[in-house]
Design a protein around this nucleic acid. Structure first.
Lengths: 225, 225
DNA sequence: ACAGATTTAGGACACTTGACAAAGTTTGGG
DNA sequence: CCCAAACTTTGTCAAGTGTCCTAAATCTGT
């Protein structure tokens, strides 16, 4: 690992990012945010099934009626929570890749390190599998999650384009997709409290090697359009 | 793709495999299996949250009382379902790698093709994210799922050992883990009804290249023990 | 065809769920 | 200060949840 690759160590993605407040008292906004924080806590600690309106209200010491005042129905709450969670990541990814002082190889390594570090956090390890499961049955979650991943791949595709200008766009996209998916997959195996959490460091080395090699060496099959 | 790599095309993993019947009438066993099939159907179509006892009973047109006769409580049912689902995969993996007539490279390719084919099935795309989410809060699911993955990696480790006898065991294990995790990660992106389902073929080429390269070229860092 | 084991139906229980309505309380601008 | 808007509590509603129990129906070997 190069020194530059450690630049963002410890810069965890914020749990929730809230949309700008419009109308209402400050108290109201504070309550709204507290509700979403409580909901996220339950989702992480006990899973989606336990995340009921009453459970959330209890978690932040308020009455159920108040909750339904701020979020008229459960779906509203879930969507607001998802938005707040995902916006954090989108901001993070938008900010990271504005440093042109590094080589593409370094940026690739940096990117992977950032993602693999985030994956080890309890929040991400617990949250994303829930989102993957939800996205199978909820189109709103589906759209929002894959929109996030699409944005997350953009910098990756830039790096690949720099390293392999000879490749056609679909091939570059496939490679970026593969790299992104590979890292996400590690969540289940080497995320927080997972069997191979302690192997993450060496897995990072394997991943880095595999990703570098595939970007450098991949040759598109004749029928890969 | 070599010809041999297509040998197992279309050999989908059975949905459920039931333990040998002991005691009771045939009718009872049939009902038990029908219940689990109905539960799986709901889990796949509507998610874990919708998989209530009443919903399952309704799904297979029987009374709730009958369901609780066969599965005294919900946990029993969930565990039996998980067992039936996972046993199918364990049998599949145990049977696949008993063919010594192929080269390690071919077996690696065969293995990846099998997994990536399975991932595109509706059942697997829908089921596994649910299991990953559940495993975060249910130790029984956790154990069972990771036991399955451990068995699934065994043939992979054998292949890697053949190809890279020079590597230490931990390094081989890391590589197998990475390969397995990479493929699982593709579920979310290129599984059934996912945004890049249609790219699976070309993603397979990317993955094959990346996996072959990393197995062939990986060099363990000095501190990778 | 009968007795005993097994399976199913039907209902009851105590509890939780999301939604709603009608009161209270707090807040901040005029 | 004051009042309307925003917030919070309190209570209720129908529907859904898992679990338990008993009686009826069904099956199997004799």
């Amino acid at each position: 690992m190069t020194e530059i690759a450690h630049r963002y160590q410890g810069t965890a993605v914020p749990d929730l990012t809230f949309p700008p407040r419009e109308g209402g008292y400050p108290k109201g906004h504070e309550t709204r945010e507290e509700i979403l924080r409580a909901a996220l806590r339950i989702l992480i600690e006990e899973g989606y099934r336990a995340m009921s309106m009453r459970r959330i209200a209890a978690q932040c010491g308020m009455k159920l009626g108040n909750l339904t005042y701020h979020f008229p129905n459960r779906e509203d709450l879930v969507q607001a929570l998802l938005d707040a969670v995902i916006t954090s990541y989108e901001i993070e990814f938008a900010n990271i890749f504005h440093d042109p002082s590094t080589t593409p190889e370094q940026r690739l390594e940096l990117y992977c390190e950032l993602v693999l570090e985030d994956i080890r956090s309890k929040k991400t390890t617990r949250l994303f599998p829930e989102l993957w499961a939800l996205s199978n049955h909820d189109t709103f979650v589906f759209e929002r999650v894959h929109d996030l991943y699409r944005r997350a791949r953009a910098p990756l595709e830039d790096v690949i384009a720099e390293m392999r200008p000879d490749l056609a766009e679909p091939a570059r996209h496939d490679i970026a997709l593969f790299i992104s998916a590979s890292m996400e997959g590690l969540t289940v195996f080497a995320g927080y409290a997972k069997p191979f959490e302690s192997r993450m460091q060496s897995l990072e080395a394997v991943a880095a090697r595999a990703f570098l090699d595939v970007v450098r060496n991949f040759v598109a099959p004749a029928d890969s359009a």
